[in-house]
Amino acid sequence: MTYATLYAICGVVLFGIGFYGTVFCRHLIRKVMAVNLMGAGVFLVMIALAARTPSGAPDPVPHAMVLTGIVVAVSATALMLALIRRLHHQTGLTELPEQMEH
């Protein structure tokens, strides 16, 4: 087992934990963190894979992708936080209501 594979598995585990958190956590901030954890897991997988080139030199493309991904993650997180803040401001809620409100 190479380091790269280990990293990749680690990334997948992180993704799983993040997924668990996103689904099962009720508090919105926790959810935001869990989503970011998922993202981190995916990025870890990508970076690990960049090392798997036959030549041994890291592949620049996954790096570029991770960078782009981070940008996306940052803006998404910002939006999430903005929305959560607004919801809290309006209703005082920190969790999404259980029942679907149509």
């Binding site: 997924f19 996103t22 689904v23 099962f24 999404l96 259980e98 029942q99 679907m100």
Partner: peptide, 16 residues
């Protein structure tokens, strides 16, 4: 059915 199907938790599990 609607209650048990259309919520975050079920959807998350169904996703997996």
């Amino acid at each position: 059915m609607t209650r048990s199907l259309e919520n975050d938790l079920t959807a998350g599990l169904l996703l997996v």
